[in-house]
Design a protein around this nucleic acid. Sequence first.
DNA 1: CCCTCACTTGACTGAACGGTCAAGCAGGGC
DNA 2: GCCCTGCTTGACCGTTCAGTCAAGTGAGGG
Lengths: 197, 197
Amino acid sequence: MPGDTRERIVAVARDLVHGASLSAVSIDDVCRAAGVHKGSLYHFFPSKDALGAAVLELNWAMMSTVLDEAFADDVAPLTRIDRFVDGFVRMLTLTRRQMDITPGCPLGNLTAELAARQGDIRARLVRILQAWTRYFADAISEARGRGEIEPTVDPNAAATRVLAHLQGLALLAKAHDDPDLVLSLKDDLPVLLSPAR
Amino acid sequence: MPGDTRERIVAVARDLVHGASLSAVSIDDVCRAAGVHKGSLYHFFPSKDALGAAVLELNWAMMSTVLDEAFADDVAPLTRIDRFVDGFVRMLTLTRRQMDITPGCPLGNLTAELAARQGDIRARLVRILQAWTRYFADAISEARGRGEIEPTVDPNAAATRVLAHLQGLALLAKAHDDPDLVLSLKDDLPVLLSPAR
DNA sequence: CCCTCACTTGACTGAACGGTCAAGCAGGGC
DNA sequence: GCCCTGCTTGACCGTTCAGTCAAGTGAGGG
């Protein structure tokens, strides 16, 4: 299978990083887990940072998949957000079963770890977070158009609120080792989508 | 000055860690910055993990100070939360000026980094987060008693909501390199403290 | 005056780290 | 049959890491 090695390396690296952190996972760890020699890895990636960037992209690709499924317009817009939360929690629960720890949001973790670095990587992180916010904003906007939430609500501000809330809950879930904590986002949604007073 | 060295080591370590992460800061870095030799550091701390634990305690002590000041009962309970947000953002802004990066929440960062480890450290993190939540819960409870928020609001659930929101905003602030993002918590507060619907 | 003990010094260790490289290998095109 | 090219191999390098240790130093107490 050509082109298989690179993908396997990134996939394995993502899993290891998701269960710990970028800095906690060494190149040797990745090679061992992927059944690949170091020179081979460095054939595809010029540096550990480059591998880290690839892991970030894979995480975003996986999150995009969950987002695209959840935000399909076969249900009401606010139901889509609920559906996404379910998918997100399912992701956490699955990793918890495999790794015996609650991993937190893969993108949130990388943001926390990499945002302090200067360079393109932070710009990319911001872009990803913005793209993520847009999923929420679009659904909120549509719900507002249908009269399901107050017309005075700013969809973008509300979407940022939802993302921040999700990230915070994911962090608490990681600390408490309980993915279900994130489920409370569904209860909090009506509150988060109500107008400021 | 007796007992000074240990404190200086922890203080310096905290600053370095706050600007990056525990794993990104080496024992040598700390020694260099504190003007101390390695054997001296290991006289006080049996391991890097022990130093990390001390850094966590110092961060909580500093946060406690900000919390105690903000939550003094010389103003209305909801005003205290606003005051805490101001203090928190001031903390971020100060570090940003010194380090040229927005550091995020010191406790949130450590939570993200250490929660995956098994052992006492996660238990301690959870306890700290609970103690933090209690500050919010007490103020919310008092505000409810004064009729400033709806009686159907559960102070503990609302407090957790506020903490999650704060952590999420701190993460976004770090990503966007803009401490002021956290200020929007003050606008979001009425929303977060309104009853579920 | 000297002993004790908390603290400091600075050189040291062994392992792990990210990264390099010359040599090989296999398959596809000429 | 040959070479080119994409990929693999496994040994190797220099650095940095957390952690150790034997030998000091100096102040306070008896």
